[in-house]
């Protein structure tokens, strides 16, 4: 089946400096794609670029953008028109994304009216269905509430409902669980997974949390300092990682069984990104050849990938 949305060789730059280089993604219906990386890896920037929401001073380009088989010129009005309707983005901070002085129901109605063009007579039903979809047992009551009357997890779910109200085909969720604790964390991830499975939504999960990616994603892209380190099905990338950075990240995650194994060094700031493989200074496998930039081949960008265990 062709991808729902494909982007090839996405570049995000600040003047002459490339912040994200050559990210290619194929998003499929009913699948969750996790964009994993630490701070400064470019995961949020690349999605903001896809939605045409880059902050001032940053620019983007891509070799190809294809939506449902149709090719769109990058930056064209057709590309711009994707935002909200075809591709919706759920921002990290639910409390600032919702209007504090408007009841939850009215916020949903606004989207239903303005974007999804749902006639007034059907809005109440759609609204209740959306709130039920995100796990509220009593949608009518929640619709009457103001955001400050809801817990963090409830707000996050309301925000998800407003994103879904527009009937998008792709939902980008930016760190949807960072502000939540363990119990709610699982709930929100389950909702995203549900959305993908039940309604054929394509979900992009932006996260620094490998466990979250492992729990819900079908596909994974691991970014390091603006470039793809490893990409492929979750089962391969996170169970049998081949890039030393992916393997390092997995080992660095505390599990409670003994001490985690740190990756030496630190993520370089943009101005100090090394030539060649960006992970080279922190990598135990690095050699002279790593002074060249490795290409992404077979899902891994590394001259010395870890052997694939059988």
């Amino acid at each position: 089946m062709p991808a729902l949305l494909e982007v090839e060789a996405l570049v995000v730059s600040s003047g002459p400096v490339a912040l994200v280089e050559g990210l290619s993604l194929a998003l499929h219906r009913g699948r969750v794609h996790a964009l994993v990386g630490e701070s400064g890896s470019g995961k949020t920037l690349s999605m903001l670029a896809l939605l045409g929401l880059l902050p001032k001073g940053l620019s983007s380009s891509a070799a190809r953008l294809c939506v449902e088989g149709e090719r769109l010129a990058w930056g064209s009005s057709a590309h711009e028109a994707l935002r909200g309707r075809t591709v919706a983005m759920m921002l990290q901070d639910a409390s600032s994304a919702l209007d504090p002085v408007m009841r939850v129901g009215r916020q949903l109605d606004e989207v239903l009216a303005a974007v999804a063009k749902v006639p007034p007579s059907e809005r109440a039903t759609r609204r209740a269905a959306l709130l039920a979809d995100v796990g509220f047992h009593e949608p009518a009551q929640v619709a009457q509430r103001y955001p400050h009357e809801l817990s963090g997890g409830m707000r996050q779910r309301v925000l998800l409902a407003t994103c879904l109200a527009a009937g998008p085909k792709v939902l980008v969720a930016d760190e949807p669980t960072t502000a939540l604790d363990a119990v709610l964390h699982g709930q929100v991830l389950a909702l995203l997974r549900d959305g993908a499975v039940r309604s054929g939504l394509s979900v992009v999960l932006i996260t620094h949390d490998l466990e979250a990616a492992r729990a819900v994603a079908d596909d994974v892209t691991v970014l390091y300092a603006g470039r793809v380190a490893e990409q492929g099905p979750t089962a391969r990338c996170l169970e049998r990682p081949r890039h030393p950075y992916t393997a390092g990240l997995l080992a660095a995650r505390p599990t409670g069984r003994g001490l985690p194994v740190p990756i030496p060094g630190a993520i370089p700031p943009v101005s100090e990104r090394p030539e060649g493989c960006r992970f080279r200074p922190r990598c135990t496998r690095a050699s002279a050849v790593c002074e060249q930039a490795p290409r992404l081949e077979g899902g891994v960008a590394c001259f010395h990938p870890l052997a694939e265990r059988p």
Partner: peptide, 24 residues
Amino acid sequence: VFGDPGHPYTRQLLAAGIERGGDW
């Protein structure tokens, strides 16, 4: 506590992988 939690809340907290819940 981690190996054999007693309180229902602790049990839920430790089991909270990916599961659906209501309005906490």
